[in-house]
Design a protein around this nucleic acid. Sequence first.
DNA 1: CGCAAGTTTGACGCTGCTCAATCACTGTGG
DNA 2: CCACAGTGATTGAGCAGCGTCAAACTTGCG
Lengths: 266, 266
Amino acid sequence: MLVFRSPVRNVMLADAPLQRRNPLIERLSMFVTLGPDERAAVEAMTQTRRAIESGETLAHEGSRPDRVCLILDGVAYRHRYTSDGRRQIFGYLLPGDLCDTKFVICNECDHNVGMLCDSQIAIIPVTTLMKTMVQFPVIERGLLMMSLVEAATAREWLLNVGQRNAFQRLGHFFCELSKRFEAFGNQGFGKGIAMPLTQRELADTMGLNVVHVNRVLQRFRNEGLLNWSRQHFRILDFGRLAELSGFDPHYLRLDRGLPERRMLAY
Amino acid sequence: MLVFRSPVRNVMLADAPLQRRNPLIERLSMFVTLGPDERAAVEAMTQTRRAIESGETLAHEGSRPDRVCLILDGVAYRHRYTSDGRRQIFGYLLPGDLCDTKFVICNECDHNVGMLCDSQIAIIPVTTLMKTMVQFPVIERGLLMMSLVEAATAREWLLNVGQRNAFQRLGHFFCELSKRFEAFGNQGFGKGIAMPLTQRELADTMGLNVVHVNRVLQRFRNEGLLNWSRQHFRILDFGRLAELSGFDPHYLRLDRGLPERRMLAY
DNA sequence: CGCAAGTTTGACGCTGCTCAATCACTGTGG
DNA sequence: CCACAGTGATTGAGCAGCGTCAAACTTGCG
């Protein structure tokens, strides 16, 4: 079995040094067209970088952060615990995602953001972010779009957990992840995607139990739909998996992204 | 059995004519402090009013609206159907709620908004909304806060559906509704709350089945926690219900609202 | 090598779903 | 005034999807 690191990191390192690519610029370019000034502004805003270890917490429920973090490389996850100790995962942050524009306005974080692997982040002071948004409305619009996609994804997850069975839930989730990675131009896509999740995380994402997740994953394997192993997955028959699980990528709004990205690639 | 109409309509009609109260002003005042000019602007923005019947659709999935609707009186609900015909309800819009600021930016509606009873709405052209937000940043901030609370509520629902059993889900939902109504100063609160829902809607909200919802409602009744009958409910023991269902109202951000509202009450 | 974390398996049972019938209430038309 | 239909609530029987518990196994790592 092929072993590789975070696919995103892979791309970054293989194609160009981390310093040369800015995932936030790429992400914003999926929704808006950035001019040279705007790119420079995003670049400037994301200069303060920092390594962060797996398991560390980027944002604590109840805290009042004065900065926003950008995932440059790695994966984070939003989550919260119930009073009786059950965990629900609300979403995963991939490179280019921000954590969290909203706390700035709300003044208070209402859930936790933890790291799933050793990662690189950029730290953006709130004041800098604000100034940049005021000066470049296009950037503001792009950030707004990003948060709207996140909200749409949250609705999709609610529908997923509320209305679909375990098989469909997991299928839908993997389709979504796969599309998101694809949109970043992940080179390793054909061979599989690395995602630092355990079956525990999958369970807490889908409102299921670890044992049952395990059994559904086996069914995926037996039916030739998907292989999950050692935090790597590979969808073998995307069309069928999408159909069986009712997946429609529209809510991710990746459609506009593709031509844009092609333009960015020179 | 006491019979009354929509409690909100009730309050409106009993306390002051609809024209005298603007639910959007009240709602914004929960998050920001509006000056006389800003109130006037909100007032001006919401002049175009219209009656709308139960069952009508305010927004269609896939449509590209050029206006935003404000619920003045009545209840709407956001929902979407899966490809196999199951419905998930994403949220309920009460007087003061907007449907939908986000579509403006996204340019496309990703779910439906339907009316649960005969209602009154105000129609705000997007251009007017934009101008008002630019001219009065406080209003923009208030609207942003409103959409953040909605996003936080969506997360709470995901946790609810993903991690809690049927009893807790329903209990949590009723606690939330009750708190939201309470925040509007609903006079009939002590006697019960009218909410134009069938058990079918409750089921599609909670990711449950109608039959099971019915049985849980009976259990609430038998345990002296809550009465639900003919689209009216009355929580008999809020404290216990909240505890049993793990409800913590923090995510609704009503805390700031209370002193504000008191000031508004003269 | 030995430990810790994660995965896999089996047995068992409960929560919640399906199907189907009945009841209660409301509005309609004759 | 009553018959009737439609909608929603309620009930029962039966069962399956998924959860719980517990143990074994596998993998990675110091």
